[in-house]
Design a protein around this nucleic acid. Structure first.
Length: 887
RNA sequence: GGGCAGUUAGCUCAGUUGGUAGAGCAUCGCCUUCACACGGCGGGGGUCGUAGGUUCAAGUCCUGUACUGCCCACCA
């Protein structure tokens, strides 16, 4: 006999065993030359600094489900794992570590600091990889990549140089978002806008000729020293007469022009706007348009510069207080009001972002966007489709992408300046000499935005720029699965660069999954303390329970509200499977089941479960093909628990225990076959428990004998699809349930055997029930079962009607008869309610005339059935009432 | 300001092409039935946010509206 499994599934050891086995046997390392349609997914590379959170767990689980399923379908499957160097995030982590030693990165110097980051990565960078493995992800570890590894760095340089030569990368002065804490530029989408309580100061600016004054409103008085104009709406009657005149900047008394531009909103504030081109994105635009002066008064550290006159050396916060006080003292502060407005924050460290003018590198995404836009949805589908508008809107309004970062950890920009002649040299490898002959070349100190390398991920991980076997075989990849929060950061940019360099979209489908929230719908975050740690869940409930929960909740386009109880609930399901397997193994004993033709079996219980199995197989495959993960999980759940365990296992017990050798053998084989196929269906969602059970099952000759991770998806058995048999089974189930209900509602102990008298509707019902007497007796716990004629029913008996078949249980005064009367009345009331509904339809001439024929027919049938049931039940009730009176 | 979701049983959510509302958990009753108490059996519980419209028929399609959440956006 196969080893007996323990009563409760214990995941820890099982998971460790299979993880080790999968990795050592390199099960998931494909050969590019192997047959089978190529199927590839790239992992959204987690940060090296990262710790696996529930969002990763969802993402990785869904990918793994598709990947494992694709293998079952015989495809040549590649899942490349890897991590992202995460420039700012990683640098921050290492800087924090340094701070504990009371050092800054400047104390170490650039080279030593970078060395330190690599060290850190050696030490901690594998944690996230181990966590990926702990989730059971079937990635190909032999092809592990890192955005800073040699190959990917080469790809980054190649892309940079080519884009530069094509004029798609350029260097220029521009107002960018500056994080004074990270000390670097940020891209537009790295800035998070948050509503913040602030103030709106109204300040009087006097005209230079002393004739008049104009009041402007501002939220940032500290930028006043940088003002180079006042702007009003050209048609604003209040200010029309001032346009073209000169005003004086308060305190500094520098003259500035009063200009007009349609941009100004007359309704807001005073309708007059002070323009500070160096410290506001809109003012920058106005400055360019009106040829204003550009005066920078706040430096990169947030300190007031010399240009700010008396405020030099103050922080911008100090300056704000002081200048407001000064203006008030001078009598030009007209008013202050509260204002809630959006303020940009750094998405990494949450410092308030300062618009800052500086020299930066840009990718001309305004030119690359069109192709990426046009590819959707013809070449790349985005699911769920409601993200389409968002994707289009972003690409239609895209600005050039600022890619330089003033940090040290990342891909250094491959650009050198000749100190002698000033020539800029952009090339992949460090130049030794300028064309002017000088060797005094200095590399640009900046590094590239982390997302720059991430944007190349789908082809760089496959070996580009070399024309590798992997690249030829697996580009474009099939599907990208990621959270919608990085649709701009990552998805859109991969599209742009993939198309530009590979001349083909990087993936055919993008599936954007939901955010995992806590049970109350809030974003999970460490600071709120509402995180569900996947590793803790794995330890407590097992990886399969976690994975199945996430899969079952992944309905398209909806956020997932997760709570620990859900995971605990699905652990029960894992255990249910485990015990169904134990039962099967016990029934098989030492014997290897003997194969027989499943299509030819005639016993209803087998025919029925095989029919249901076919349904489940079709449902699961179809659901996964359409990314309906939740439906796939539900189909499995329902089939295994509600059909296989609740009914089939109970149905075959009599056969297994006291059946003939032949029927026992058939039951064993069906049991074995169905369980095996369930294991295959569930394997992508619950890889560990299924693999463990699979290897405990005996092998039957000419069935697939390899391990489960390699098992093909079960072939269809069209001849097993038998809806008529399923309907017969449903009738029998109905009878069993009716008897159980009678017992339960009359407080008859379920174990107590009763006599059942049956008045069948017709001969075929009688034959069907007669053929399954044992089964009925066992599952409904009957003493015996007899067919009687209508009118022979004993008066003192409980009754029920199923599909016109009357079921009568004589009570012989054992129970409270009044209870049965109440029960019958309740049932009759229910019937009457249904009947009214149906009859209402049938009474409506419009319905009869316009509804589809099959709908009308069905209604009529139903009405008849209900009427029939009602009549029978009413008659039974009458007899019963009589009995009650006589008693 | 623009866009997108959601609003269905006490809770969390399903509900493919319009045809008499489903699951899990929770709850109540019964059961130490030899796979499983991480179990079995049975029950109760919803006029599908709201107001209209289309239709013989609407949770399902259309319009308005309320509330909640998210994303985008240069009102200083």
């Amino acid at each position: 006999m196969s080893e007996i499994l323990a009563t409760a599934y214990e995941p820890a050891q099982v998971e460790a065993h299979w993880r080790k086995h999968w990795e050592e046997a390199q099960i998931f390392t494909p050969d590019p030359k192997a047959p089978g349609e190529p199927y590839a997914i790239v992992i959204p590379p987690p940060n090296v600094t990262g710790v696996l959170h529930i969002g990763h767990a969802l993402n990785l689980t869904l990918i793994d489900v598709l990947i494992r399923h694709a293998r079952q379908l015989g495809k040549n499957v590649l899942w490349v794992p890897g991590t992202d160097h995460a420039g700012i995030a990683t640098q921050n982590v290492v800087e924090r570590a340094l701070a504990r030693e009371h050092k800054t990165r400047h104390d170490l110097g650039r080279e030593a600091f970078i060395e330190r980051v690599w060290q850190w990565r050696e030490e901690y960078g594998h944690r996230i990889l181990e966590q990926i493995a702990a989730l059971g992800c079937s990635v190909d570890w032999t092809r592990l990549r890192f955005t800073m590894d040699e190959g990917l760095s080469k790809a980054v340089r190649r892309v940079f140089v080519q884009l530069y030569n094509e004029g798609l990368i350029y260097k220029g002065d521009y107002i960018i978002n500056w994080c004074a804490r990270c000390h670097t530029a940020l891209a537009d989408d790295e800035v998070e806008h948050e509503n913040t309580h602030g103030h709106l100061w109204s300040i009087r600016y006097r005209l230079s000729d002393g004739s008049d004054a104009i009041v402007v409103a501002t939220t940032r008085p500290e930028t006043i020293p940088g003002d180079t104009a006042i702007c009003v709406h050209p048609e604003d009657d209040r200010y029309k007469h001032l346009i073209g005149k000169t005003a004086l900047v308060p305190i500094l008394n520098r003259p500035i022009p009063i200009i007009a531009d349609n941009y100004v909103d007359r309704e807001f504030g005073t309708g007059a706007l002070k323009v500070t081109p160096c410290h506001d994105h809109n003012d920058w635009m106005l400055g360019k348009r009106h040829n204003l002066e550009f005066i920078q008064v706040i430096d990169a550290d947030g300190i007031m510069k010399e240009e700010s006159g008396p405020y030099v050396g103050l922080t911008k916060e100090e300056c704000r207080k002081k200048i407001v006080a000064d203006i008030e003292a001078q009598g030009d502060l007209v008013g202050v009001s509260d204002l809630e407005h959006a303020v940009g924050h750094c998405y990494r460290c949450h410092t308030v972002v300062e618009p800052h003018v500086s020299t930066q590198w840009f990718v001309a995404t305004t030119k690359l966007a069109k192709e990426a836009r046009d590819a959707v949805p013809s070449l790349t589908k985005i699911l769920p489709t409601n993200w389409l508008k968002t994707y289009y809107h972003w690409l239609d309004n895209i600005r050039d992408w600022c890619i330089s970062r003033q940090i040290w950890w990342g891909h250094r920009i491959p650009a050198w300046t000749c100190e002698k002649c000033g020539k800029l040299i952009v090339q992949e490898d460090a130049p030794t000499k300028c064309s002017c002959g000088s060797t005094d070349l200095v590399q640009d100190p900046d590094v590239l935005d982390t997302w720059f390398s991430s944007s190349l991920w789908p082809f760089s991980t496959l070996g580009w720029p070399d024309n590798t076997e992997e690249l030829k075989r697996w580009y474009p990849t099939n599907v990208l699965i990621t959270g919608f929060d990085i649709i701009f950061f990552w998805v859109a940019r991969m599209m742009m660069l993939g198309q530009h360099f590979m001349h083909e979209v990087p993936f055919k489908t993008v599936y954007l999954h939901a955010l995992v929230r806590d049970a109350t719908g809030h974003k999970m975050s460490k600071s709120t303390g509402n995180v569900i740690d996947p590793q803790v869940m794995i330890t407590k409930y097992g990886c399969d329970a976690l994975r199945f929960t996430l899969t079952a909740f992944a309905a398209m386009g909806r956020d997932i509200r997760l709570s620990e109880e859900r995971i605990e609930g699905y652990r029960h399901f894992v255990n249910k499977l485990w015990n169904a397997a134990r039962f099967t193994l016990m029934q098989l004993g030492d014997t290897t089941p003997i194969a027989c033709a499943l299509e030819a079996l005639t016993d209803l219980e087998h025919v029925w479960i095989l029919h249901k199995l076919e349904e489940a197989k079709t449902n699961v495959a179809q659901a996964l093909a359409e990314y309906r993960f939740n439906d796939a999980a539900q189909s499995c759940y329902k089939f295994l628990w509600a059909e296989f365990c609740d009914w089939y296992l109970e149905l075959v017990k009599p056969m297994l225990q006291q059946g003939t050798e032949q029927s026992k053998s058939q039951a064993q084989y069906v049991l074995w076959s169905v369980l095996r196929e369930i294991l295959i269906l569930l394997h992508p969602m619950m890889p560990f428990v299924t693999a463990e059970i699979w290897q405990a099952l005996p092998c039957v000759s000419d069935s697939f004998t390899g391990e489960l991770a390699k098992a093909p998806y079960p072939a269809k058995r069209p001849l097993c699809i038998k809806p008529e048999a399923a309907a017969q089974m449903e009738f029998i189930q109905g009878v069993i349930v009716a008897v159980r209900t009678i017992k339960a509602e009359l407080n008859i102990s379920p174990g107590r055997k009763v006599h059942l008298l049956i008045v069948p509707q017709d001969q075929s019902q009688q034959d069907l029930l007669a053929r399954h007497t044992t089964l009925l007796q066992t599952l409904a716990r009957l003493e015996d079962l007899k067919f009687i004629q209508s009118g022979e029913q004993p008066k003192a008996s409980a009754a029920s009607v199923v599909q016109g078949c009357q079921l009568v249980v004589p009570l012989k005064g054992t129970v409270d008869l009044a209870q049965e009367l109440a029960r019958l009345d309740k049932q009759l009331a229910k019937l009457a309610k249904n009947l009214i509904n149906v009859q209402k339809h049938l009474a409506d001439p419009n319905f009869l005339a316009k509804a589809q024929a099959h709908v009308v027919e069905r209604e009529q049938q139903q009405a008849q059935e209900l009427l029939d049931n009602q009549a029978k039940l009413t008659a039974l009730r009458e007899r019963f009432a009589q009995a009650l009176e006589e008693a």
